[in-house]
Amino acid sequence: MNPWPYPLWIAHRGAGKLAPENTLAAFRVGASHGYRAFECDVKLSADGVPFLLHDATLQRTTPAHGVAGERDWNELARLDAGSWHSPAHAGEPIPSLETIAHYCLHNGFALNIEIKPTPGSEQETGYAVAREAARLWASEALKPLLSSFRPDALAAAKAADASLPRALLLDSLREGWLDDARALACVAIVANHAALDAAVIAQVHAAGMRALSYTVNDDATARRLAAAGIDGLITDVVDHFAPDTLIHS
């Protein structure tokens, strides 16, 4: 396998427990704890702008309701995505992928972009996110890692720019998962920690890919996966795990 360029520890949704998830504020909190790699969810606005949001709908993390992907970016950009978390973050906006890219590039941070399509827009979203990522990181050696639970979104990302690294997200080891990852020319799989053990990680490595895990929030799981040879650990608790500590030899 080629050397793996990404840090072991990755801040989930940009430290999305200590600050409003998928916002610039959350990235800044993660960075304040020493993290140099981040994960975020990206979908498309109605007018084709990639932006950060986990849910298909707006009501959990903004005062608005309805499907986020049915709104134009100028509407989404004005929403308050911070008050739901705490008064200190009132008025924090939903960021575009471009905003997060500039922050990461300015600071030398690595990024895992989860392609999170609004249902029914898998191919459109995969293609558009990859095109935007290719543009934003055009002059950079370290590209963002594009991941998705949706093989069709990853296939569209591959069609848009095959040079960007891809990873298949897995909640469980469903039938055909490794064949799907191979067919998409993935460099990694990112799986629920409960689905991974030493045998599965060895299988992934034998296929020439890396194994990453989400969402690792306790010491026992981190130690178990580290001993099994894990390549990346995505965590919510950036205030608990020190990202510069290698927990495996």
Rank of each mutant, 00 (worst) to 15 (best):
P3V: 07
Y6D: 04
P7Y: 03
P7S: 05
W9T: 06
I10P: 00
G14E: 05
K17A: 11
E21L: 10
A26G: 15
F27Q: 08
R28C: 03
A31H: 14
V42G: 02
K43D: 07
S45G: 09
A46T: 06
A46F: 07
D47T: 12
V49G: 06
V49L: 09
D55C: 10
D55H: 12
A56P: 07
L58W: 05
V67H: 01
D72Q: 13
L76A: 11
A77P: 09
D80V: 09
A90V: 07
E92R: 00
P93W: 00
S96L: 03
E98P: 05
T99L: 10
T99I: 00
I100D: 01
Y103P: 04
Y103L: 15
C104W: 04
L105S: 01
L105P: 02
H106S: 13
T118V: 14
P119Y: 03
S121F: 12
E124Q: 14
G126P: 01
G126H: 00
V129H: 00
L136W: 00
A138S: 09
L142S: 02
L145V: 10
S147R: 04
S148D: 00
P151D: 05
K158E: 14
S172L: 04
L173G: 01
L178S: 02
D179F: 01
D180Y: 03
A181W: 09
A181S: 07
A183Q: 10
L184C: 08
V190Q: 13
N192W: 09
H193T: 04
L196T: 08
A198G: 05
A198H: 07
V200R: 12
H205I: 10
A206K: 13
A206L: 10
G208H: 11
M209K: 09
A211D: 06
A220G: 01
T221R: 07
A222G: 10
L225V: 06
A227T: 08
I230M: 05
L233I: 15
L233E: 02
V238G: 00
D239E: 14
D239C: 06
H240N: 01
D244I: 04
H248Y: 13
